[in-house]
Design a protein around this nucleic acid. Structure first.
Length: 282
DNA sequence: GGTAGGACGTATATCTCAAA
DNA sequence: TTTGAGATATACGTCCTACC
C-alpha cells in the first residue's frame, strides 16, 4: 500500500495542500507512473509508506488487529519496535507496557489480537499485504483460484490475467509486487509466523435459497454486523455488493440508512427491513 | 470522570473490468 | 470506444473502551 502524495482530483471536503516536488517524509523525488491519476513516492523504504502499510495490514478488513491504530503504530515506529509486518509478530509484553497510555491489560489485549490474526482466512491475508489494485474482492478471487500464497507469488502475469475479474493492470501489479525480493522475503517471514496457511474450504452452503440474488446492505442492523449479514447471505448462495444498481435484487435496510436507500427507491429495488431479512434467511 | 484513541458506518470520487 | 456495474480509497462523525 503506497502513500498518496498528490491527487489530481480530490473530494470537495478534502483539505487543500500545495503539490510537493519531493516526498515530505523521506525527501525522494515524487513521480507519477504512466496512466496513474496520482503521484507517489517511489522510495521502497519510505517511512510514510511503512506507516500506512502497517495501518492497512492491521485494519479490520485485513488482519483485523484490534487496538493497533494510528497512534500506536506511530509509537511503535518511533521506538523502532516494528519495521515491517512480520516484526508485529515478534513484539514482547514487557516492551509494550513501556508505551504511552499502555498498561498491562492493553498490552495483553494487543498480543492476543496479534496472535488471533494468524487465523484470518487466506483472502484477508492476501488483502493485508497491500498489493496495489488488490483489494478485498481481488484478494478473494486469488484465494479462490489458488490455495496458497506461493502459487500466487510464482504465477506469471499472463496466467493471472486469464482469471476472470483480473485484468492487465491488476495482474501486472501483482507480478511487480512479487518480483521485489524484499516482498518475497517478507512473505517467507510471515509464513514462519504461521501466516498464509493453505486456504480452508469455505463453509458449505446451508441452502441455495438466495442463489443468484444480489444484496446491498445499508444502515445498522440490530441482530447482525455487516459481516455477519454478508456471511448469512453468502451461505445461502447470494451475493453482497457495495452499491445499489438496477441489477440489485434487495436492499437490506437497518437503522439510519444512507443514500443507498434513495438509490434503491430510484431503481425500484425492493427494500427489506431487518425482520423481513431474517424471514428471507429462514 | 475526563480524555485519547480505535472501531464502525456513511458518503463520495475515482478506478477497473466486461459487455455492448 | 463507450458505458454501466461494482470495487477501492479516503474523509468524517459518532460511539465505545481503556488509561490516567
Amino acid at each position: 500500500k503506497v502513500v498518496k502524495v498528490i491527487e489530481t482530483k480530490r473530494p470537495p471536503n478534502a483539505r487543500k495542500f500545495v503539490m510537493p516536488e519531493k516526498c515530505p517524509v523521506c525527501g525522494a523525488k515524487i513521480i507519477r507512473p504512466e496512466g496513474e491519476a496520482v503521484s507517489r513516492c517511489p522510495n521502497l523504504s519510505c517511512p510514510a509508506k511503512l506507516r500506512e502499510s502497517l495501518l492497512h495490514f492491521a485494519g479490520r478488513r485485513a488482519m483485523n488487529i484490534e487496538g493497533l491504530g494510528v497512534k500506536l503504530v506511530d509509537q511503535l515506529l518511533e521506538k523502532k519496535m516494528v519495521h515491517d509486518y512480520a516484526s508485529l509478530y515478534e513484539m514482547k509484553l514487557e516492551e509494550l507496557v513501556e508505551l504511552d497510555r499502555f498498561g498491562q491489560k492493553s498490552a495483553e489485549n494487543l498480543l492476543r489480537e496479534i496472535e488471533n490474526s494468524k487465523q484470518r482466512p487466506l483472502d484477508q491475508q492476501i488483502f493485508a499485504l497491500g498489493v496495489r489494485y488488490t483489494g478485498e474482492h481481488v484478494a478473494a478471487i486469488l484465494a479462490e483460484h489458488y490455495s496458497n500464497i506461493d502459487d500466487i507469488a510464482n504465477a506469471k502475469v499472463e496466467e493471472l490475467q486469464a482469471i476472470p475479474g483480473i485484468g492487465e493492470r491488476i495482474a501486472t501489479s501483482i507480478g511487480e509486487f512479487f518480483a521485489v525480493p524484499q516482498n518475497r522475503k517478507l512473505v517467507e517471514r510471515l509464513k514462519e509466523h504461521n501466516l498464509f496457511r493453505p486456504k480452508v474450504k469455505k463453509q458449505k452452503l446451508v441452502s441455495s435459497t438466495l442463489s443468484g440474488k444480489t444484496f446491498v446492505i445499508t444502515g445498522t442492523l440490530e441482530k447482525f454486523s455487516r459481516d455477519e449479514a454478508k456471511e448469512e447471505i453468502e451461505k445461502r448462495g447470494g451475493k453482497v455488493t457495495s452499491s445499489v444498481s438496477k441489477s440489485t435484487d434487495y436492499l437490506v435496510c437497518g437503522e439510519s440508512p444512507g443514500s443507498k436507500l434513495d438509490n434503491a427507491k430510484k431503481f425500484g429495488v425492493p427494500v427489506l427491513d431487518e425482520t423481513e431479512f431474517v424471514k428471507i434467511l429462514s
